[in-house]
Amino acid sequence: KKYKVVEVKENKDGTVELVVENENGEKKKITLSKEELDKLKAGDTVELK
């Protein structure tokens, strides 16, 4: 499934919390490390299994 990044929030521990949404409007929260996030920004599309 493809999800669009709608919100990006940095946590104090250096991880980043993303809120992503698919075309049905379903939202998910995922947490990434700073390194994983470096290639993402709001409006990008991510694929989740």
Rank of each mutant, 00 (worst) to 15 (best):
K28T: 13
V5G: 01
K1R: 13
K39Y: 08
E23W: 11
V6F: 08
N24R: 10
K34H: 12
E21K: 05
K4M: 05
E23N: 04
V16K: 04
K27I: 12
V46N: 06
G43S: 05
D13V: 01
K29C: 14
G43H: 03
E17Q: 09
V16N: 02
L48C: 15
E21N: 01
D13S: 02
G43P: 02
V46G: 09
K1I: 12
T31P: 03
G25N: 04
E36F: 14
D13H: 03
K27D: 01
N24A: 13
E7C: 15
E7H: 08
K1N: 07
G14L: 02
K9D: 02
E10M: 08
E35M: 13
T45I: 11
E23Q: 07
N22I: 05
T45R: 01
D44V: 05
L18Y: 03
K27H: 12
G25L: 02
V8R: 04
K29L: 11
E23L: 06
A42V: 15
K1P: 01
E35R: 14
K27C: 12
L37G: 15
K2Q: 05
E23A: 07
E17H: 08
E36A: 11
V20H: 01
E36N: 14
D13T: 02
E17P: 00
I30D: 00
N24K: 10
V20M: 07
K29S: 14
V8H: 03
K9T: 08
A42G: 03
G25V: 00
L40N: 03
V16W: 15
K49W: 04
G25T: 01
K2D: 01
G14H: 02
K41R: 11
K12C: 14
E7A: 10
V5F: 03
K27P: 05
A42I: 15
K41F: 04
D44I: 06
V20E: 00
V5C: 14
V19N: 02
D44C: 11
I30Y: 14
K34Q: 07
E21Q: 07
K2C: 15
K39Q: 09
G25R: 04
E35Y: 14
L32I: 11
E36G: 15
T15S: 06
L48H: 06
N22M: 08
V6Y: 06
V20Y: 10
E7F: 13
V6L: 11
T45H: 07
K29D: 02
V6M: 08
L18K: 00
K12W: 11
S33Y: 12
K9F: 12
V46P: 08
V8L: 09
V19D: 02
E47Y: 09
V8W: 12
L40F: 15
L37R: 13
N24V: 10
G14W: 01
V20G: 00
K2R: 10
K39F: 08
S33C: 15
G14N: 04
K28V: 12
E26G: 06
E23S: 07
G25Y: 04
K39V: 07
L18I: 10
N22A: 13
S33V: 09
G43D: 06
K34C: 11
L37Y: 12
Y3W: 10
K39R: 09
D38M: 14
K39M: 08
E47R: 06
K29A: 12
L40M: 07
E26A: 07
V16L: 07
V16G: 08
G14D: 02
N24F: 13
E10K: 05
E36R: 13
E47P: 02
E10A: 07
Y3Q: 00
D13A: 02
D13C: 10
K1M: 13
T45V: 11
I30K: 01
K27G: 03
K12A: 08
D44A: 05
D44E: 10
K12Y: 11
L40P: 13
Y3H: 01
T31I: 08
N11S: 06
T15C: 09
K9V: 11
K1L: 12
N22E: 07
K2G: 02
D38Q: 10
S33F: 14
T15A: 03
E35D: 13
E26P: 01
E36C: 14
L48Y: 01
V6Q: 03
T15P: 01
K2V: 11
K28F: 15
K1A: 09
T45W: 15
V5N: 01
N24E: 12
E21F: 04
V8I: 11
N22G: 13
D44G: 09
K4D: 01
K34L: 13
V46D: 12
T31C: 14
T31Y: 14
T15D: 04
K49Q: 15
A42S: 07
E35T: 13
E7I: 09
D44K: 05
D38E: 10
E21L: 08
S33A: 12
L37V: 12
N22L: 06
A42D: 07
V8F: 11
G14K: 01
K49C: 15
E47H: 12
L32R: 06
K29H: 13
V8D: 00
V46S: 03
E36V: 10
I30T: 01
N24D: 12
L32T: 06
K1G: 07
E10T: 09
K49S: 15
E10I: 05
I30M: 12
E47A: 02
V5D: 00
L37H: 10
K28W: 15
S33T: 08
E35Q: 12
